[in-house]
């Protein structure tokens, strides 16, 4: 005899109302309402005005620089971040633990502090910058400076995403490849790197997304010349200083949308690879 039964609420640990209520309330006040303000400001903007703002050469140059340098920085971080993560996990060498702890430095250091430190070292009179300067290479007040700062802040994202992946890497898989006659190079290219690909992609996108919005560590080293070394974040600040709130919002909207899309892409990457390898997220 089948009868329809309605399900009762499950007994729960105490505190649901208080914790859930406070979480939603605080999230709404601190994050969602301000976010909504930006969103509404952008979509209520006149379309022609929006296009005019965004197609201003200075804006285009800033966006090109921001996206280009962020992309390149993330790419460089993938190379050096992978090497770093691999060395830190697989090899033993002096000061390894110290270096491992230092990876998080860009996250722990206030961006303004990193900014002046990088600017000082890579300026044409600085510890490092003074060497390539005579050769005509400017490591500060140039787009190269922007790149250096963006490499700096994106670095931990690549390393920290790759480390657990390398740790989880089944070494028996590599041994199996070797036992089947593959050379070490073949093993790395055909077995190791493909299995690290999801982590590499995730690390890349995280570093890229972070670089897009970076401000503090860039502005000191960049020189901030309009059309040349001015990043999008700085342009938002200049627009605000000119009291052009609509213009600032338009650039912010584009930048934020791009960042969120990229982060959504990470989710999709994770979902795709988990489905393929049958792993649980």
């Amino acid at each position: 005899m089948r009868t329809s039964r309605t399900s009762c609420k499950r007994p729960q640990l105490p505190g649901w109302g208080l914790t859930f209520g406070f979480t939603i309330f605080y999230l709404t006040i601190v994050v969602l309402i301000p976010l909504l303000a930006l969103f509404l400001k952008s979509i209520t903007m006149d379309w022609n005005e929006f296009v005019a703002t965004m197609s201003h050469p200075r804006v285009l140059a800033a966006i090109r620089l921001t996206f280009g340098a962020s992309f390149l920085a993330a790419l460089i971080n993938v190379v050096f971040g992978s090497i770093t993560a691999w060395s830190l996990i697989r090899y033993r060498f002096p000061l390894r633990k110290l270096l491992d702890a230092l990876v998080d430095l860009p996250l722990a250091m206030p961006t303004a502090v990193s900014g002046i430190a990088l600017a000082t070292i890579y300026s044409h009179t600085g510890l490092v910058g003074s060497h390539p300067f005579p050769l005509g290479i400017k490591t500060a007040n140039s787009s190269l400076g922007v790149l250096i700062a963006l490499i700096f802040i994106g670095f931990p994202f690549v390393v920290r995403t790759l480390q657990p992946a390398i740790e989880d890497l089944d070494q028996e898989m590599e041994q199996a490849a070797a036992s089947l006659g593959a050379t070490r190079f073949q093993t790395v290219m055909k077995v190791t790197i493909p299995s690290l690909l999801p982590a590499i992609l995730t690390g890349f996108t995280l570093a890229f997304a972070r670089a897009l919005g970076e401000y503090g560590s860039v502005i000191f080293i960049a020189g901030n010349l309009p059309m040349k070394t001015e990043i999008a974040s700085l342009l938002i600040v200049s627009r605000l200083d000119e009291n052009d709130i609509a213009g600032a919002s338009a650039i912010a909207f584009v930048l934020l949308t791009a960042t969120l899309l990229i982060l959504l892409l990470i989710q999709a990457i994770g979902w795709y690879f988990n489905r393929r390898t049958g792993r649980q997220a």
């Binding site: 976010l35 303000a37 930006l38 919005g213 970076e214 709130i245 960042t259």
Partner: peptide, 20 residues
């Protein structure tokens, strides 16, 4: 959503508060 502030650039965060 709790992670959102990580994804939002500090400058944009400041701007959001200016808008409110």
């Amino acid at each position: 959503m709790i992670d959102l502030p990580f994804a939002i650039s500090p400058i944009i965060a400041g701007l959001m508060y200016v808008l409110v």
